[in-house]
């Protein structure tokens, strides 16, 4: 067998290609292979800086509060990550979660349905709503932005019409729906069962994305749709399943949200759409699809939470947190653009 000319002496160009790389280039390659490193670095630096500004920041009680505050957005952002990995976007995350909370709570309180059943039906509403997004994206071939912009209004309207704009209060809520608000102590950290639910959700989805062929196909479809089709991946089936699984995650998040607030209100988590996208983007997942990871998204959600509490403990106006978040989004996307230009 002949060999494809490999042992020939290196040409000038090849020697040039093998030259020592500058530290900047090596950083670029490092970030290219590990996109979650930059949010991790930001989180560590923010943690150190806020601890210096106010030592109370590093106390277990503060960290417990951050985790509780972050849980709902982090969970929604896990679903959002799946969709953004396919080069899509979901503007209806918050609407689906609210619809599911109101559905479960009203079924249980006004409909007299047992708590567990109301919970399951609420999660099912999330699945159906996500599946509807998926059907519109794959059957009508509409851009995900347009589909979810439309369903954002539709799901919000349905939620308001169904609930009559009324919130379901704390005292009426059955135990099964409130379970995710149960406080527990893990070591020195006071958190809730809802935080555990979100952590398990993150671990399970991270496993599925990195270890199963379905996960690999999610990346492939987002990276190059036509190539995926040509190698025999059933692209529409992957997309539909992604939107449906995201809906399932939003449905479970609704449960965590009821536990967190103790109520089901049409006015809750109004910023969820943009907050979830912010977490995904700061976490290093590319809006162009095919690149990113759940761990980055969790780090992204934590960064936003750390900034919120950290700046407030430092005695700074909350608007600085909003400003800092905006800067982080722009920096994160710039880094993504930069590392995508990497060459071997």
């Amino acid at each position: 067998m002949t060999s494809v000319s490999t042992h020939a002496p290196a040409s000038a160009a090849e020697q040039f290609a093998m030259r020592r790389q500058s530290p900047v280039q090596r950083l670029q390659q490092l970030l290219h292979s590990h996109p979650s490193l930059s949010p991790l670095l930001v989180l560590i630096v923010a943690f150190v800086v806020f601890t210096i500004l106010n030592p109370r920041f590093a106390q277990p009680s503060t960290i417990g509060i951050i985790l509780q505050q972050v849980a709902v957005i982090a969970a929604l952002a896990i679903g959002q990550t799946l969709i953004i990995l396919t080069a899509g976007i979901d503007l209806s995350v918050g609407a689906i979660a609210i619809l599911a909370t109101l559905f479960s709570a009203n079924l249980a309180v006004k409909g007299g349905v047992p708590g567990i059943l109301a919970l399951i039906l609420g999660v099912l509403v999330g699945v159906l709503a996500g599946g509807l997004n998926g059907l519109l994206v794959t059957r009508l071939r509409l851009p995900p932005f347009i589909v979810t912009l439309g369903t954002l209004s539709i799901f919000t309207a349905i939620a308001l019409l169904y609930s009559g704009g009324q919130q379901v209060g704390r005292r009426q809520m059955p135990a099964a729906l409130n379970w995710a608000g149960t406080p527990i102590l893990i070591g020195p950290f006071r958190i809730t069962t809802g935080v555990i639910v979100v952590a398990v959700l993150a671990i399970v989805m991270a496993f599925i994305l990195s270890q199963t062929s379905w996960g690999r196909h999610v990346y492939a479809v987002g990276n190059d749709l036509e190539a995926s089709r040509l190698v025999g991946i059933r692209v529409d089936r992957v997309l539909l399943s992604v939107y449906t699984v995201a809906g399932l995650i939003y449905g479970l998040t609704a449960w965590v949200q009821i536990g967190r607030s103790g109520t089901a209100s049409p006015n809750a988590i109004v910023d969820a759409n943009l907050d979830s996208i912010t977490a995904v983007v700061i976490g290093g997942t590319s809006l162009f699809g095919g690149r990113g990871a759940i761990i980055g998204t969790i780090l992204g959600a934590l960064i936003v939470g750390v900034f919120r509490i950290g700046l407030s403990l430092a005695g700074v106006d909350d608007q600085w947190r909003v400003l800092a978040t905006g800067l982080l989004v722009i920096i994160a996307v710039s880094i993504d653009q930069w590392i995508r230009k990497v060459k071997a």
């Binding site: 690999r216 990276n223 190539a227 190698v231």
Partner: peptide, 14 residues
């Protein structure tokens, strides 16, 4: 028909 962001092995078995 390759997915550029995936590695060689992932593309071979895609």
């Amino acid at each position: 028909a390759v997915a550029p962001a995936l590695d060689i092995s992932a593309n071979m078995f895609l």
